[in-house]
Simulated assay, not measured.
Amino acid sequence: MSARTSPPPSSAFMLICLLHSVIALSSGALMMFRMKEIYTFTHGIETATKLLGSTPHDQLLIRTSDSFSGLLLFAIGLFLFMVSFIEDMDFQSFFAKGCIFLHVFMAVWRFWFERRVEDLAWDSVRQTVGDILLSLSWVFFLVCSWGEKYD
Rank of each mutant, 00 (worst) to 15 (best):
S145V: 12
A121E: 11
L120F: 10
A24H: 06
V117Q: 12
C144D: 11
T40P: 00
F113D: 11
L73M: 15
W112P: 00
E37L: 07
S135Q: 03
L60N: 12
E114H: 05
V117C: 05
L120K: 05
G44Y: 06
I100A: 01
F41V: 02
L52T: 03
L134E: 04
C17A: 11
F41M: 02
V143K: 07
D58L: 08
F79A: 12
F101C: 14
F41K: 01
F113E: 10
V125F: 12
F111R: 01
A29G: 01
D151K: 15
W122V: 15
S21A: 12
I76D: 03
G77W: 06
I16L: 05
G77I: 04
S145F: 00
E37C: 03
L73G: 02
F74D: 03
W138I: 00
M1E: 12
D90F: 11
A24F: 10
R110V: 03
W109F: 14
A121C: 09
S84V: 04
L71T: 09
G28S: 06
S67N: 09
T42I: 14
F91N: 08
T128N: 04
L102G: 09
R63L: 10
F85N: 13
I38D: 02
S124K: 03
I38S: 07
I16S: 00
I76P: 00
Q59C: 12
L142C: 04
G147I: 10
L102S: 14
Q59S: 15
E114P: 00
L19T: 13
L51Y: 00
S10N: 06
V83T: 07
G28I: 07
A75Q: 12
P8F: 05
M32A: 05
M31T: 05
C99S: 12
Y39I: 00
Y150M: 08
K50H: 05
W138V: 01
F91R: 09
I132M: 04
G44H: 02
F111S: 10
F101K: 07
L71M: 14
D66S: 08
L73I: 14
A29V: 08
A48I: 01
F141I: 03
R126S: 11
S6D: 13
F79C: 10
L80N: 08
P8D: 10
P8V: 07
V129E: 04
F140M: 11
I16W: 04
C144Q: 13
E114C: 06
W122I: 14
R126A: 13
L18V: 09
T49K: 15
M31L: 15
G98P: 01
S84C: 06
L52N: 07
R116P: 01
V104N: 04
S84L: 03
M106Q: 13
L18T: 06
F94C: 11
S145E: 07
S67E: 04
S93W: 05
M89V: 15
L18W: 07
S135N: 01
R34K: 14
F101W: 10
C17P: 06
D131I: 01
F105Y: 10
R110L: 15
E87Q: 15
P8M: 06
G53L: 02
T55F: 08
H103R: 15
C17H: 06
F41Q: 03
L51N: 03
V83I: 12
P9V: 08
M106R: 11
K97N: 12
W109C: 13
